[in-house]
């Protein structure tokens, strides 16, 4: 039975991959003309940019999951808080864009650490489901609280950016500065995270705590503080993601709904794999963008979930996931 699912998964994944890379070859063989190819590439580029936002949100979720086995449904709300903080620093207080972005990420990290310290810590040892519900509860509270802050409220805002909302062209493909910034930030952030986890003491301690809490504890790593820091790191990443999502969905109390696109990304990549989250996010972004352009608008809305269901049924461990089996 499992074998059949695996084969089916390979067929579907392979066919999708072939379909995805085929347009340039179709162009070379003269089946489609250059404008059709450019349209296609245009969609892919915007899909990658959107996917990078999903990837960053998924990255935050996976960081927390790997370490604490908590699935943070409030990641979207933390992202929203980040966006609102950025809005405050940049628009209301009139700070420099980059400085405001950094401060917003830092502020969001503090929020994340607070969440861990105040509401997650007392729940340690409870069933995973209860902890998930606590994060959902925090999401409700956060949304409600943000809508009550004077100057924030339930309106939509746009964050002022140093680069205009126009595009530069590369060949015939138009790329907006917003998209370019998203991709660039994602790449820089991923590189930074990689170096951090690879070469710093703190990063290695974080990895150790994720792999085996007890062993890490015996090695003298303060596991609880490390978990708080991981929440902070993950929230900071979410804050940056919020800043980058702002040009597309605007800063709004409901922008946290993006988390429901990030879960398919995380599952597709293999829940608990950091590169998986990035790849999964980008794939989900591309799938959404292409299905929205070539198929129906309704299909675009459900595309992420169709992928999620397919992955869960056919290959629950995802692309980069590791299979765990319980020993009896």
């Amino acid at each position: 039975m499992d074998k059949a699912f695996e084969v089916l998964w390979r067929i579907i994944a392979g066919a999708s991959l072939v379909a995805f890379v085929s347009p340039p070859f179709l162009f070379l063989f003269g089946v489609i003309d250059s404008s059709a190819l450019m349209l296609y590439l245009q969609q892919v580029v915007s899909g990658v940019a959107n996917g990078c936002v999903y990837a960053l949100v998924a990255l935050g979720i996976v960081l927390i999951y790997k370490a604490t086995e908590t699935i943070n449904f409030a990641q979207g709300e933390i992202l929203m808080i980040g966006a609102f903080l950025a809005f405050t620093f940049i628009n209301i207080l009139g700070m420099n864009f980059w400085l405001g972005a950094l401060l917003a990420a830092g502020g969001t990290a503090l929020v994340g650490m607070g969440v861990d310290r105040i509401i997650i810590r007392p729940m340690v040892g409870q069933p995973a489901f209860a902890i998930v519900m606590v994060t959902i509860g925090f999401g409700f509270v956060a949304r409600s609280a943000v809508s009550m802050v004077p100057g924030w409220g339930t309106d939509s805002y746009a964050i002022e950016r140093p680069f205009a909302a126009d595009v530069f062209t590369w060949g015939e493909i138009a790329i907006s500065y917003d998209h370019a910034m998203i991709v660039a930030t994602t790449v820089v952030l991923c590189a930074a995270l990689f170096l951090f986890f690879r070469y710093t003491k703190l990063g290695i301690a974080m990895q150790a705590s994720s792999q085996n809490q007890l062993a890490a504890y015996y090695m003298g790593i303060p596991v609880r503080q490390i978990f708080t820091l991981i929440w902070g790191l993950s929230a900071g990443v979410a804050g940056l993601a919020g800043l980058m999502l702002a040009p597309f969905t605007f800063v709004h109390t409901n922008m946290g709904m993006v988390v429901f696109r990030a879960f398919p990304a995380a599952v597709l990549g293999g829940f608990g794999s950091i590169p998986g989250a990035i790849v999964g996010g980008i794939i989900i972004g591309i799938v959404e963008s292409l299905s929205g352009f070539y198929l129906d608008e309704g299909i675009k809305n459900v595309a992420a979930y169709v992928v999620l269901l397919l992955v869960l049924v056919l290959k629950p461990e995802g692309i980069f996931g590791v299979v765990h089996r319980k020993k009896v």
Binding site: I119, M133, V134, F138, F140, A145
Partner: peptide, 19 residues
């Protein structure tokens, strides 16, 4: 007067109960 008050109260009560 906030429209989000109801959900906030839901969330708060949920957190308090679970903890």
């Amino acid at each position: 007067e906030q429209p989000g008050l109801k959900n906030g109260v839901y969330g708060l009560i949920l957190i308090l109960f679970l903890i």
